[in-house]
Computed example of a mutant assay.
Amino acid sequence: MRAGQLPERVRFEQRGLDRNGDRLGDWVADPAFETAAGFTWLRGGETAINARLQGVQPVVVRVRISQLLATVTTAFRVVDLATGDVFAIRSRILDRRARVLDFACDTGGTDG
Results as ranks from 00 to 15, higher is better:
residue 17 L to K: 05
residue 43 R to H: 12
residue 21 G to S: 05
residue 42 L to N: 09
residue 14 Q to I: 05
residue 36 A to T: 10
residue 108 G to D: 12
residue 12 F to L: 12
residue 55 G to L: 12
residue 50 N to F: 02
residue 105 C to K: 10
residue 79 V to S: 00
residue 101 L to R: 13
residue 40 T to A: 08
residue 63 V to I: 01
residue 50 N to Q: 06
residue 44 G to K: 02
residue 69 L to D: 01
residue 104 A to V: 15
residue 93 I to M: 09
residue 108 G to A: 11
residue 19 R to M: 05
residue 41 W to Q: 01
residue 89 I to S: 11
residue 55 G to Y: 08
residue 79 V to W: 00
residue 32 A to K: 10
residue 98 A to S: 11
residue 41 W to P: 00
residue 43 R to L: 13
residue 18 D to T: 14
residue 67 Q to E: 08
residue 80 D to K: 02
residue 59 V to S: 03
residue 77 R to Y: 00
residue 33 F to E: 04
residue 36 A to W: 12
residue 3 A to K: 15
residue 18 D to L: 12
residue 60 V to N: 01
residue 86 V to G: 07
residue 81 L to W: 08
residue 95 D to P: 11
residue 49 I to H: 01
residue 47 T to A: 07
residue 79 V to T: 02
residue 99 R to Q: 15
residue 53 L to Q: 02
residue 108 G to N: 13
residue 22 D to Y: 10
residue 104 A to Y: 10
residue 90 R to G: 06
residue 7 P to H: 10
residue 4 G to F: 15
residue 3 A to I: 15
residue 110 T to F: 09
residue 68 L to E: 14
residue 81 L to Q: 09
residue 87 F to R: 06
residue 84 G to R: 03
residue 78 V to N: 02
residue 12 F to T: 09
residue 54 Q to Y: 04
residue 14 Q to H: 12
residue 63 V to G: 05
residue 107 T to F: 07
residue 26 D to W: 10
residue 56 V to A: 02
residue 91 S to Y: 07
residue 9 R to G: 14
residue 60 V to C: 08
residue 51 A to V: 02
residue 21 G to T: 01
residue 34 E to N: 13
residue 20 N to W: 11
residue 29 A to S: 03
residue 28 V to P: 03
residue 49 I to D: 02
residue 76 F to P: 00
residue 8 E to M: 14
residue 96 R to K: 12
residue 46 E to V: 03
residue 99 R to C: 15
residue 85 D to I: 12
residue 23 R to V: 08
residue 37 A to R: 02
residue 91 S to C: 07
